[in-house]
């Protein structure tokens, strides 16, 4: 039976980290339940990788507390070994040993994860098959394409069946088919209760996959659902469409309306107070003889909202 209120796998409060004089992360809070996906957004250097490394037990935080997979985040390397054993990491750069074969690379990491020797080969072969790499298993990783290395990186991260998975720009360099496979895999892992943090610049990916989104620019700028982020505030954009799409004779847009785009029969307008303005505009157009078939106030998209926050 699924626990309706599962304990969060990650519970972080006020995490901060500096590198010398530079503040890399500030006031980072997060609560992530099993089976949920967090989309981590932010420009380059916003602290996404630092946040993931802290939560994965690779870096210590200068301030703040965190409980990761039931283990308290500590300042010492030894104290965080249990956290590292519970997490899987797909780094931005796969970082494989290029002279070794894929199977040897995975055997090595399986060994470091403490997997029993007898179980290493079956597990490695299972993952190679799952990611479609069996035919090239004995080839040197140096001969692999970027997409293949990325798939191998995912296989490596899943070797020890982690309860939390950190994905740092996992679809960078993947073709559309491989990207779709990865999205399917994320869905599968979610079903199995794996919590995931997905750092990406592809906003559509976050919209499609994440339950929560966190926009970071050293400190969190927004935390909530991707849907709520997109429509958090009413927009000031109105879209109208009518047959033919030409302005009726004698009709002119009021001064409070700015035409943003006109393509075919569709007009996109920027309007102050659209709730009041839209009925008046519609009436004026209909009176002028336009056969309007669409009129809507548009909420800002996730992309627009993101750019607004970042700028």
């Amino acid at each position: 039976m699924v626990d309706p209120c599962p304990r969060p796998l990650i519970e972080a409060r006020g995490l901060c980290r500096r590198f010398g004089d530079r503040v890399a992360l500030q006031d980072f809070d997060l609560s992530l339940a099993p089976g949920s996906v967090l989309g981590l957004l932010g420009p380059n250097g916003a602290g996404k990788t630092t946040a993931m490394r802290i939560l994965a037990g690779l870096l210590a935080a200068d301030a703040g507390t965190a409980l990761v997979a039931g283990h308290e985040l500590r300042a010492s390397e030894a104290g965080n070994a249990a956290i590292r054993a519970s997490c899987g990491l797909v780094p931005e750069q796969p970082g494989f040993y290029e002279r070794l074969s894929a199977i040897d690379n995975l055997r090595f990491y399986a060994g470091l994860q403490g997997i029993d020797r007898a179980e290493i080969d079956p597990r490695v072969r299972e993952l190679l098959a799952r990611f479609g790499l069996t035919a090239r298993a004995e080839d040197r990783v140096g001969t692999y394409s970027k997409g293949m290395q990325q798939r191998l990186s995912l296989a490596r991260a899943l070797l020890h069946r982690p309860s939390i998975l950190f994905l740092d720009e996992p679809t960078a360099g993947l073709d559309p088919v491989a990207t779709a496979d990865l999205h399917a895999l994320i869905g599968e892992l979610r079903q199995q209760g794996c919590a995931m943090i997905l750092s990406t610049h592809v906003l559509e990916e976050v919209e499609a996959l994440a339950d929560q989104v966190l926009v970071l620019r050293t400190r969190p700028l927004y935390a909530g659902s991707p849907q709520a982020m997109g429509s958090a505030e009413p927009g000031n954009r109105v879209e109208l469409a009518w047959d033919g799409g030409e302005l009726p004779d004698g009709f002119a847009w009021p001064l409070t309306v700015t035409v943003k785009q006109h393509k075919g029969e569709v007009w996109q307008l920027q309007v102050e107070s659209p709730r009041q303005a839209l009925p008046q505009l519609l009436q004026a157009l209909l009176s002028a003889g336009a056969r309007v078939y669409r009129a809507e106030i548009q909420a800002p998209s996730l992309r627009e909202r993101y750019l607004e926050l970042i700028r």
Binding site: L58, P94, Y97, Y109
Partner: peptide
Amino acid sequence: RSLEPVLATP
């Protein structure tokens, strides 16, 4: 860049 995945293990 192979050190990060190694350091990410226990």
